[in-house]
């Protein structure tokens, strides 16, 4: 059994973003053929592809930083739960369409702030990738912002479900901003990320007539140390089944 060890601090930083994108991509892929309308089905599948694309490009950088000791595919398909470093927010299930929208919205505003700072990184490929992601993610934001307002200002039922999704997922936003030394090495201004995120989400809560849930200190173990919600194991079991069962399978 191959052991994937990520020791380079820059690679450790990048794999957090890569893992988050891959896991969100997998959650969105689950919506393929399950969305409420055909247009949504296509939209969510495309958004999932974007996440996989970003995740893959980041994983290539991770693998290069570790002297190609493993491939990007190995990194995705051959790590266990505790070796994953995605944010818990993206692990949350597609309970209903409002969950899909709220999760995407909170994620989009967050990663926009991350990639904004990486767009001027001295690593030329990472900077270029970040600039590209910033352009692409505008389409995702258009989609998630539009739906957030439509659901929040839609019917009583849609508002209730959206507010409920927000209330449940809110507890997973706290850890986004508990930046450690590794984050602070590669992000130029971590305080600005939290400040801009708060501004961004508050503005949309007003637009969508949703209530910002109360911020309270919780004791949730940090994703940066490989701690996850109960959902990640199930996602990985599904996502990794084929490459684990048939290690040499090729397309």
């Amino acid at each position: 059994m191959m052991q994937i060890k990520i020791t380079n601090p820059f690679a450790k930083f990048l794999v957090r973003i890569a893992d988050s994108e891959i896991i969100l991509g997998q959650r969105l892929a689950e919506m393929c053929s399950n969305a409420p309308t055909l247009e949504e089905d296509i939209a969510l599948s495309n958004l999932g592809l974007d996440c996989f694309g970003r995740g893959e490009e980041l994983m290539k950088l991770v693998s290069a930083l570790e002297n190609n000791a493993f491939t990007p595919d190995d990194c995705v398909f051959r790590r266990n739960e505790r070796e994953y470093f995605c944010i818990k927010l993206v692990e949350q299930p597609n309970n209903d369409f409002a969950w899909v929208v709220v999760r995407q919205f909170l994620h989009d505003v967050y990663v926009t702030e991350i990639f904004k700072q990486l767009a001027t990184n001295e690593h030329q490929e990472l900077a270029a990738l970040s600039q590209k992601v910033l352009k692409e993610i505008e389409y995702s934001k258009m989609h998630s912002f539009d739906w957030l307002v439509r659901l929040g200002r839609g019917t009583e039922e849609s508002k209730m479900r959206t507010q409920n999704a927000l209330n449940v997922m809110w507890k997973y936003t706290e850890e986004l901003f508990l930046f450690d030394e590794i984050d602070k090495t590669y992000l130029s201004d971590t305080d600005a990320i939290a400040a801009n995120w708060n501004l961004g989400v508050n503005e949309m809560f007003a637009a969508a007539d949703l209530e910002r849930p109360a911020d309270k200190k919780r004791h949730i173990l940090d994703f940066r140390k490989g701690f996850h919600s109960e959902f990640l194991g199930l996602i990985l079991a599904d996502m990794q089944y084929l490459p684990r069962a048939y290690p040499d399978a090729k397309w």
């Binding site: 974007d50 996989f52 694309g53 970003r54 490009e57 990738l129 590209k132």
Partner: peptide, 10 residues
Amino acid sequence: TPTYTGCPAK
């Protein structure tokens, strides 16, 4: 160079 990062044709 890739067109879209998520382009399945990469």
